[in-house]
Design a protein around this nucleic acid. Structure first.
Ligand SMILES: [Mn+2]
Ligand SMILES: [Mn+2]
Ligand SMILES: [Zn+2]
Ligand SMILES: [Zn+2]
Lengths: 150, 150
DNA sequence: GTGATATTGATAATCATTATCAATTGATAT
DNA sequence: ATATCAATTGATAATGATTATCAATATCAC
């Protein structure tokens, strides 16, 4: 099963990377990663905290923030900025899952997309500017087309 | 002179748009726009406030924030996010000046660029997703290549 | 000039995120 | 299993950028 494989590798990745960096696997971290893996949207720290507390009431918001920070440095979690004031998070296992977001400015809906041409182009641009590309942010904002499908 | 023409059109644009929206032209707004037009970088509100106070000591930080907000809504100013915690601002007269930024994560240096291919592609992507593109954010982060020119 | 109202400066409030710190826990060696 | 010790946690204070409040002031159409 594809889903199971992905979840396993995420948890394995977590434990392996934790050991490699001298970090400890705690119950709190396990819960937070699990909740985030089960989420199919982009929760902020508070939303995540609420979900996490349904599993373990005692986990604090500080631990949620700290864990997200750790997971981000491990490239297990991606931190996103959709323009409202808070950061949003999602699982980002390996390089496979790289994608960007189209945000409907009327409904707030978020559509994910990946475009290889775009990835190539942005790499080429960086190269022409004399840079080694380390990271990039791209978000599109728009409104739904009132087309035939409407 | 090209520079003079741009400055004139920016100030004219300011006054015209202010009148159109029932906004008043104040000394504070004039100073803030002027300082921002003379800047060739991306100051944050505090940096801008410091520069503004050299012309008029009495202008408050609140007015700087408020003015930037007004100017942004008029599309005279673009608000940027380079990943440090504060917003940065720059003059953005008309559509002509649309551009993006390559940020050197080691030095903090910011290089501006424009790429038509990229603009076309991002428009095409939005269209394929069924969206009318209203805005987009794109920033590249990287390190200088250790190439021949070094 | 006068008057309605937009704007301002000073300052308090907000709100997301970080820092602090004593208490607890996980990993490792014995 | 127990001891050890650094990593982690929860509670809470602090931070820092931005926004809201409000009485005083300035702008502009008349
Ligand atoms: Mn996503
Ligand atoms: Mn710029
Ligand atoms: Zn990408
Ligand atoms: Zn663009």
């Amino acid at each position: 099963m594809d889903l199971v494989k992905r979840e396993q590798s995420a948890l394995e990745g977590l434990e392996a990377l934790c050991h490699a960096k001298g970090l400890r696997i705690t119950g709190q971290r396990r819960v937070i990663v699990q909740i985030l893996m089960d989420a199919d949207d982009h929760p902020d720290a508070d939303e995540l905290h609420s979900m996490v507390r349904k599993v373990d009431r005692s986990i604090s918001i500080a631990t949620v923030y700290r864990t997200l920070q750790v997971l981000e440095q491990m490239n297990i979690v991606a931190k996103r900025d959709f323009g409202d004031g808070r950061a949003r998070y999602e699982i980002s296992v390996g390089q496979r899952d790289h994608h960007h977001h189209m945000i409907d400015i009327e409904s707030g809906e978020v559509i994910e997309f990946y475009n290889q041409e775009l990835e190539d182009l942005k790499m080429r641009i960086a190269d022409e500017l004399g840079f080694d590309l380390v990271d990039h942010h791209l978000e599109l904002f728009g409104t739904r087309l009132a087309s035939a499908g409407d």
